[in-house]
């Protein structure tokens, strides 16, 4: 069975997280759950990967964190996308568009 190579996906973890944050602020587990659901269980992001992406992007100014108490009374760290984050996402989108277009030319199914 094919599984996703972590080397390849690594460059796109940030993009996936930012994509989800475009819809509004969210917290760690919710994001990891959505990634799993949207990818139809084909990609499960590790907790450490997710957290390191959060800290990296926060440092770069793409996201901001804030505390909020959830409905069940739990205090959680929420993340929201910044203007720089949106710009960065746009760049990544264009980059991916180009990348997949280029790489696609070299892909064919061998029967």
């Amino acid at each position: 069975m094919t599984s996703i190579s972590s080397d390849v996906i690594r460059g796109y973890n940030d993009t996936m997280i930012l994509y989800l944050l475009l819809d509004g602020p969210s917290y760690g587990y919710e994001i990891s759950k959505k990634i799993r659901e949207i990818s139809e269980e084909k990609y499960v992001i590790k907790e450490t990967t997710l957290y390191s992406a959060f800290t990296r992007m926060e440092k770069n100014g793409y996201i901001q964190s804030f505390y909020q108490t959830a409905e069940n009374g739990k205090r959680r760290t929420y993340y929201q996308i910044t203007q720089e984050g949106i710009t960065y996402y746009q760049q990544k989108y264009n980059e991916w568009d180009l990348t997949q277009e280029v790489v696609q030319h070299f892909m064919k199914k061998i029967l």
């Binding site: 917290y27 760690g28 587990y29 990891s32 907790e47 450490t48 957290y51 959060f54 739990k74 959680r76």
Partner: peptide, 9 residues
């Protein structure tokens, strides 16, 4: 943070 994510999961 990691503890929170693990607990949620």
């Amino acid at each position: 943070e990691l503890g929170q994510m693990m607990e949620d999961k």
